[in-house]
């Protein structure tokens, strides 16, 4: 860990000013990913700006939906009665995130901006275009089941490991930010970028921009929704694959569907073919399987990640089956 200047800020303006002055500035919130990156010398900022005291941790229901402060802790969001009752996909995704200690520390905004678990990025040594631009991608031909199935480039096959982001994408959430040019909102689908030729640029955020909140539209609360995650250990592991689904149902018929896949791309990934297939139909076991298969449309296996394709289909099926059970009034 190289020396850096530590700045604790009490207001957003100061944080933004730091970030605008030095684009390499890192914002520290919960620290659960950042401290690992510092510890391993992967992140070597001159300045670390501690934004944890900014007043962005409230969880509030508004007339339009739900506003979750970016600095709210994962554990508090997962425990929130309104979220458990009306946005259960979020609570489920958070409940399966990391460990209880990490959930007490990590923030919503930080979770969305956590960096890939790609083994070749994290080891601090291997060629990696994301960590050391121009050095090459070791993961493309490596044996790492994490590698992306969608949207990868020659330069990078890393995946985004967040559980939360997958649930939020399925609920059509937006990220609210404030920065040098004022406030704006970013649809979750556009927060993260595909790697392209510049895999080190991971989000749509400009230097100095700070996430203030996550907004989930009220419409999401009325949807059948589920999050399903597959991992090797029964707990405390990033997903091998995961899926979040939300279905707008009218008298049992699917009017709209959103399916998001986790750990298969550089960003949470929409399974649009599968979504289209669901529209106008009634959810049942056969349809859940059909849509699961459709969710693999366009998946391009590389190296040792081919097994993730059938697993992805089946995890989508599980999430849809969960929705079907909710629809049938079976809470199990």
């Amino acid at each position: 860990m190289q020396p850096f200047a530590y700045h604790k800020v009490r207001d957003a303006e100061t944080a933004i000013a730091h970030g605008a002055r030095d684009p390499q500035t890192i914002f520290l919130a919960g620290g659960t990913d950042l401290v690992q990156l510092l510890e391993d010398g992967i992140s070597r900022p001159q300045g670390v700006v501690d934004i944890s005291a900014l007043p962005f941790d409230a969880i509030a229901t508004t007339i339009d939906g739900l506003r979750i402060g970016a600095l709210a802790k994962l554990a508090d969001v997962a425990d929130h009665a309104e979220i458990r009752a009306r946005y259960p996909a979020i609570a489920a995704a958070l409940g399966e995130t990391a460990s209880p200690m990490v959930r007490n520390m990590a923030t919503m905004g930080g979770n969305l901006l956590q960096r890939t678990r790609c083994l070749y990025f994290r080891d601090g040594v291997s060629p990696c275009n994301k960590r050391a631009p121009g050095s090459g991608c070791s993961a493309r031909l490596g044996h790492d089941a994490q590698a992306a199935l969608f949207g990868a480039s020659e330069a990078c096959v890393a995946t985004h490991p967040s559980d939360l982001a997958v649930a939020l994408l399925a609920l059509d959430a937006e990220v609210l930010v404030v920065g040098p040019s004022g406030e704006r909102s970013i649809p979750l689908d556009r927060l993260h970028r595909l790697p392209g030729e510049t895999p080190w640029i991971e989000s749509d955020l400009e230097p100095g921009e700070v996430i203030t909140a996550i907004f989930v539209p009220r419409e999401a609360a009325g949807r059948a929704q589920a999050y399903a995650k597959l991992r090797h250990r029964a707990s405390f592991e990033w997903p091998l694959v995961s899926a979040a689904v939300s279905l707008a149902l009218v008298e049992g018929t699917i009017e709209d569907a959103r399916i998001a896949l986790g750990a298969v791309a550089h960003k949470p990934w929409r399974a649009e073919t599968a979504e289209r297939l669901l529209i106008g139909r009634r959810i049942d076991d056969a349809l859940a399987r059909e849509a699961g298969e459709a969710a693999t449309d366009g998946a391009r296996p590389i190296a040792e990640n081919a097994a993730k394709i059938p697993l992805m289909a089946r995890i989508v099926t599980r999430a849809l089956q969960d929705c079907a059970r909710q629809q049938a009034g079976d809470p199990s």
Binding site: Y6, K8, L28, G31, T32, V35, Q36, V48, D50, S52, A75, A98, S99, P100, M101, V102, N104, M105
Partner: peptide
Amino acid sequence: GSCGACTILVDGRRAVSCLMLAAA
């Protein structure tokens, strides 16, 4: 933060002290 051997309570809640900067 992957093993929990450093778990302590911070303001009464569990935390892994290896991922906290003392300065913060």
